[in-house]
Each structure stands twice: as C-alpha cells, then as structure tokens.
Design a binder for these strands. Structure first.
Lengths: 246, 246
DNA sequence: TGCGTTTCTTAGGAGATTCACAGGTTGCGG
DNA sequence: CCGCAACCTGTGAATCTCCTAAGAAACGCA
C-alpha cells in the first residue's frame, strides 16, 4: 500500500497500514545514526544493532520487513549472521553493506536470492532506493506500488533506470540519475544544495559544493534542452522540479 | 492541527491541542534569549539549555517536539549531543545552528534525515520558518497544516517558494520573500520597522533602518502594481498587509 | 593495458541582489 | 499655509550567487 502525504511524498506501507520496519546493523555508530535518520525520514520504523549477536536478538522480536547488514561485524562473520537471520526470518530481504574492495563474487552469489548490496561509502539516495526496491519486491508492501516516478511529461523508472521526456529516451549517468530521482521524489519543493549533497553524494564526499550546480547544469542540458524548463533555480534557496505546464 | 488566534495568526498545535514544545540549546545567553522570545511569540512552549549536558537532561523530561541546537557547545561536541538526543528522542527533528564558515565540513549529513540548519548570524524569520517546516514534516503537528499562506488573492507557498497574486506568478528575491512571509503571517496587524528589521534581517545587521522602506517599496512594485493595494503604511507605526477587498 | 566515460576541480564571467545615499513626496501639527 | 518628520524611490556600486567551459583524475570495461 502507498499513501501520499500532504507534502506529496509517497510512503511505503505494509498491507495492514502499519509502517515498514527496518533493522540496521553496522558497528560504526555514525553509520547507524546516519542510516536511521534517513530511513526514519522515509516514514519507516527503525531499530539498529552494532553486532551480529544484537542483530539476531533484535530481529527475533522486532520482526523487520527488511535488514541493512554490514558484512564486516566485530563479533561474527557476515555469512554467519546472515544464516542465523535467515533461520529467524526466512523471507526477509537483506541489503548488504560492503567495502568497495570486498570480494565481489561472493556478494554476487548472495544477491541471487533477491537480496541486494551497496558499497561503502554509499549515498543515502542509493540505500533508500535499493531498500524500497527490496521491500516492494518482497511483497511486504503492496505490490501495486510501482517504481515509476512521473513529473509532467518526465518519467523515471527506478527499476530499469530509464528516463524519458515526452517519449524521448534520455541517457543519464549514475549521479545524474540519482540527482533527478531525488528531485522527482520531491516535486515542487525547493531543495537546498546542502540537502542535495547530503542525500545524493556519498557521506564521505569532501569536495566543493558546486558539484551540485554542475550536475544541475548537466541535467538541464539533457532534460530541459530546447523544451519548457522543468528544473528551476530559487536563488539563495536551492532548486526544484515541477511540470513544465504550471 | 492549526488554529487561528483572535489576532488572525495561525498557530501550529500538536494533535492533542497542546502547544508545540521546542528546546533551544546555545551557550550564548543572548542567543537563547533572542530565540526563546521569538519562538514564544509563535505560541510555542520553550525551554533552553546552555550546554550539552543540560540539553540531554532537559530533553529527557521536557520531551520537546523540536530542538534548536548550536553545534558549538562548551562541554561536548555537537555530534555527540545529537547522538544522545537521538537516544532520548529518536524522532525529534533538529535545527542546527552553525558558524558561516563551518558549513562545508561539519554539516555533511545533517540534513539527510530531514533535519535542517541555519548559519549564524541568522534572521529570526528564517529560524522560525525552518522550525515550522521541520515540525510540520515530522508529524508532531497535524498533517493538515500546509505550507501555503493566503491573504486575499495573494498566495505564498513556503515549500516551493512561489508567490502569486490573482493567479499571476510573482518572482521575489530571498529578502523580499522573507519580508512578505512575515507580513502574511501577521495579516491585518501593524508591524513596526523595528519589528520587521529584527525579524527579517540577521541579528547582526548594522545597516540603515530604511532598508525596510526600500524593501516594502520593492514588494509594492511587485505585488500591488496596478492593483488594489494590499500593503498599507500606518504613518508613525509601521506597515500591515490585508486583503484588498476590505 | 588502453580507451571511452564519468566525476570533480578550477576559474572566469554574467547577472541578480543587497544596500547606501540622496533628493523628492506626503501627511500632520501648529 | 508652513515646516518638519516620516516615508518613498531612483541610481549606482559592491557583493554574492549561479552557470558553464575546460581539463585533470578516477573509473570501468574490453
């Protein structure tokens, strides 16, 4: 089931109308904090754990609809945690967090069962999107909730990563795609450069804030080129996207 | 829930009808005083603390709906305070106060969870607006409260920063926008130049008092031009806005 | 490894915004 | 009707914000 808040944000809900429950497992407090904040903001109910033992225990009585699991935990191997989790919650989808250089194929094998993973350092947009996808496909939330964002004649498919405006297919790079997704998930709302940076770029990004301007410029070239503009600048405030009509 | 006071001000209330509670944390007494006064004027219940320890304690039994938190506290790091606050009050939104130059490094990730920040020196109007936004989106106040101010045929949307009169879109600069918001939040009420200066300009503004006249003039040109005027001068007292009809 | 793609930094410039200054206008008390 | 105080607004300069070109660095893939 989905519901639309007064602000226009679409929220995932379970079939019985209660909020989706997510368990976050990571030993770095700053990461669990960051993730908890971001996921709570999605309207989900969050519980976190700092090690494998805690994860199993929490899973037992929290009964989450999805788990975010760091593969590098202090007390036990990621695969062990996964196995025990599976014994508690056979069908719960898991989003793995792995270091960039971690063994790719081992993870790849794990995700065959419908799970997914992101590499550290991640962007919150990416984690949230992957998680939404997992929950949607697991059937914990209503199946009808679909993965296509639409603003005016602009369309973005979160599953296929296809973007089109007025029927024309548009190729976007990964970063452009995430930026556009963030904008489109908040149509008609001014988003500050800080918000965009926090959400779309990795949490360890230390660069210049004008990458946002740069990518907005790229997006405009691709989706607004020669058309009625949909991306607007609010000088001193941020950017927003809205249908070209109004 | 929102309710309209006899003066015509719209107040944010919690679902049970009690006033919104805000905790202000800053080590400079002058700042907490300034903020407390301004926020009480909004009809909110305010408690303040001068350091991290006090903040945690106060949060524990005051149970605020939002927190204003200076990132520079004498006894502990801002992020530490945040972490402990979150343990007490997992869902409470936080408005961070930061120095202008600290924005780049320290702010990373702060807005990710729906929190927000303003840089010192701030304008009260900005703090109040951000706080209202946070509270509105957190769901502590009734969701029906929306972000659109209406006075007569004049409309101001705090989310999209759009302003229109009788259907015509009007472009305002950041300062013009804040001034108009302040006027529209206090319709039919005379606001003195001093009040306006205190609210809309940063607390350290050292310029000439006639910037207010200047900006009122700008606003008139944009929203009253060729129409029934809505902005009126009360000689020797201040300015007020009201529907053109009456 | 090598090549095309993507990401990000730097830097210059265009234009918008803010504000001071100053001269003009209006309203009001005497 | 005068004069003063309060208010209005044109002008222009300093500043700030944003846009984008160009190129370096990192990445991904064959």
């Amino acid at each position: 089931m989905t519901t639309t808040s007064p602000q226009g944000r679409t929220e995932l809900l379970r079939p019985d109308g209660s909020p989706v429950r997510v368990l976050v497992v990571d030993d770095e407090m700053s990461i669990t904090e960051l993730l908890s904040m971001a996921l709570r903001y999605e309207g989900w109910q969050i519980r976190s754990a700092g090690d494998g033992t805690g994860a199993i225990q929490t899973a037992r009585d929290f009964r989450p609809d999805a788990v975010v699991l760091d593969m590098m935990l202090p007390d036990m191997d990621g695969l062990t945690v996964l196995g025990r989790l599976r014994r508690e919650l056979p069908d719960v989808p898991v989003l793995f967090l792995t270091a960039k250089d971690a063994v790719e194929d081992r993870i790849a094998g794990l995700t065959a069962g419908g799970d997914d993973y992101v590499t550290k350092p991640f962007s919150l947009e990416e984690v949230v999107a992957r998680l939404r996808g997992l929950i949607r496909r697991s059937g914990a939330a209503d199946r009808r909730s679909d993965s296509v964002l639409v603003v005016g004649d602009l369309t973005l498919d979160e599953d296929s990563h296809e973007v089109s405006r007025a029927g024309d297919n548009i190729h976007l790079t990964a970063t452009e795609f995430e930026l556009l997704r963030f904008l489109m998930r908040n149509p008609r709302r001014v988003l500050s450069k800080a918000q965009i940076l926090d959400r779309v770029w990795s949490y360890d990004f230390g660069g210049q804030a004008n990458v946002v301007e740069l990518y907005i410029s790229y997006l405009r070239r691709k989706i607004d080129a020669g058309r009625e503009p949909m991306i607007h600048t609010r000088r001193g405030a941020g950017y927003l996207i809205k249908p070209a009509a109004s």
